[in-house]
Design a protein around this nucleic acid. Structure first.
Lengths: 140, 140
DNA sequence: TTCAACCTTGCCATGGGGGTAAGGTCAAGC
DNA sequence: GCTTGACCTTACCCCCATGGCAAGGTTGAA
């Protein structure tokens, strides 16, 4: 199977399939005489695993951990759970930051008349405010 | 005032002060004979504005819009509000994606025994699952 | 004069991709 | 056998926002 089929079946782009190989996340597939990547069923399963984990927001490093646990028959499910729980905490932290931003921004928006006049509390608060309580930095 | 003082007063790093100048976000400050950046009170105000907006998650491009509105005395507060509301929508979209991830991940974690045995529903679901319903992609 | 603390520019790295170019390969149709 | 188009390869550059480091110049005080 060539890369396009493997990518389609796994839900990744050709680009990212190559990228995951380059960074050592996945097993390099066999090559044809012409140098084309040849994917086995097993390769595609691994790619799909990566795609699913990415969709849940796991980082490349975390997926590397999950992949090695996956291929280790002596793993403890505890170890898998720990990775997942850690990621869940990261998701929680990001949500909290977004919520703080949302709260502050919503308050500012509600104070802005939104008419043709130049006076705008949003600009005023951005000039003066001590929004510094939005911490942690997960901007944008 | 040199860059370190300007950065400290505005709440940015020296690095980012230079970066925002490089990308054309802020007014380039005056230079001393030796080439040192010399920041005025006005410059520092602009930097602080940028810092506050970044803390709320506005993108560089959006902050550029806000800065030009800020320095335009004929602006309509409506225009400012539109930028803020658009950013709020982006925050909402990201929160929804994070929430979907959290929901799915939490469900998987709850099904994992987390003991010494290798059987782990997290791994199983990552292999098979159609998590494809997590859309939009705002990973990590 | 020396020394530390500042400043400058330029390059590399991160993560998780997208794009694009220049070239090789393969298979079908003529 | 040759052309054509769809595929494949590697190798670059880009985004955003930021950190770090290196090599060199400047300033000010002891």
């Amino acid at each position: 199977m060539n890369i396009s089929d493997a990518a389609r079946l796994s839900g990744l782009s050709n680009k990212m399939v190559r990228h995951y190989e380059t960074v050592g996340l996945i097993q390099p597939p066999a090559r044809s005489a012409a140098g084309y990547r040849q994917y086995s069923r097993r390769n595609v399963d691994e790619l799909a695993f990566v795609a699913h984990a990415r969709a849940l927001g796991f980082s490349i490093a975390q997926i590397g951990d999950l992949l090695s646990l996956r291929q280790n028959p002596n793993r403890a499910s505890r170890a898998v759970k720990v990775v997942a729980q850690q990621h869940l905490q990261e998701l929680d932290a990001k949500m909290q930051q977004l919520e703080q931003m949302k709260t502050l921004l919503t308050g500012m928006i509600n104070q802005c008349p939104g008419d043709d006049d130049p006076d705008c509390s949003i600009l005023q608060q951005l000039e003066t405010s001590d929004i510094s309580t939005v911490n942690g930095d997960n901007r944008s």
